[in-house]
Simulated scan of single mutants.
Amino acid sequence: MGAPLTVVTGGSRGIGAATVAALARAGHDVVVGYRSDGAAAARVVADAEAVGVRAVAVRADVTDPADVDRLFATDLGTPTGLVANAGLTAHLGDLADTPVDVVRTVLEVNLLGAVLCCRRAAQVMATDRGGAGGAVVCISSSAATLGSPHEYVHYAAAKAGVDALVVGLAKELAASGVRVNGVAPGLVRTDIHTGAGDPGRVDRVTGRVPLGRAGEPDEIAPAVVWLLGPDAGYVSGTVLRVAGGL
């Protein structure tokens, strides 16, 4: 049996990059999906290769089915794992003040992107479709249950959809050798906040977190690795909250 091969979308930065590094240390070969920063993706690939696994970067828009297909069709083989991590908030503010194009983009990347990636994973991994089985982890958010009023209600709604995707698909694929789970981070130090136009948000809202601090990407990645691995063999349909008590 060869090494597991895991696709990580949004793998060039933040939680995705930390997850690739942790998977590599756990012996996974990795496909690093990225949207635009090829140099960053190349660094993540090089770091993975440095610990002795195979890795490749694939530029892909997760809302484009053809791009999603390419993520699962590299020379490394047929994936046995997926981390559906690609996401963005894009804007901070009341929903009434959020431009429609921003709402649409956030919904498409965070929810449609996860659905399309999970759909492809089901096609290639399900044992009743000729696959070898596998595991899927979708990156959700504590926003899915908190709602994120005055910040990004549309993002929270998309992540709530991701939670429903996890629950439903886990049941759908239970007899097909594929486990499906989610990880819901809380406030984490990544550049998603800068991308939304508020680089200081983490420090401004840390007081909401019961543990009194923001999380780091390296604190989210181990949960993902565990859910993909054999120690979580009886875990499916679960969204694991890693949010400092939030």
Rank of each mutant, 00 (worst) to 15 (best):
A21E: 14
A22H: 03
L23I: 00
L23W: 03
R25K: 13
A26V: 03
A26W: 02
G27V: 00
G27E: 01
D29F: 00
D29C: 06
V30T: 14
V32H: 00
G33V: 06
Y34D: 06
Y34K: 07
R35M: 01
S36R: 15
D37L: 02
D37K: 08
A39Y: 08
A40S: 15
A41T: 09
A42Q: 14
A42T: 13
R43C: 09
R43L: 15
V44L: 13
V44K: 15
A46C: 06
V51N: 10
G52I: 00
R54K: 10
R54T: 03
V58E: 02
A60E: 05
V62G: 08
T63S: 15
P65K: 13
V68I: 00
V68D: 07
D69S: 13
D69A: 15
F72L: 11
A73H: 06
T74G: 09
D75Y: 00
D75W: 02
T78F: 03
P79Y: 09
L82S: 09
V83M: 05
N85Y: 01
N85Q: 04
A86V: 08
A86I: 04
A90Y: 02
A90W: 02
H91L: 03
L92P: 01
L95D: 06
D97W: 11
V100A: 12
V100G: 06
D101H: 13
V102D: 04
L107H: 08
L111C: 08
G113M: 05
C117M: 08
C118L: 11
C118Y: 05
R119H: 14
A121H: 03
A121I: 05
A122L: 08
Q123W: 12
Q123S: 13
Q123G: 13
D128S: 14
R129Y: 02
A132F: 01
A132V: 11
A132I: 11
G133T: 08
G134E: 04
G134V: 11
A135M: 04
A135R: 03
V136H: 02
C138M: 11
S140M: 11
S141L: 10
S141D: 14
S141R: 00
A143H: 04
A143C: 07
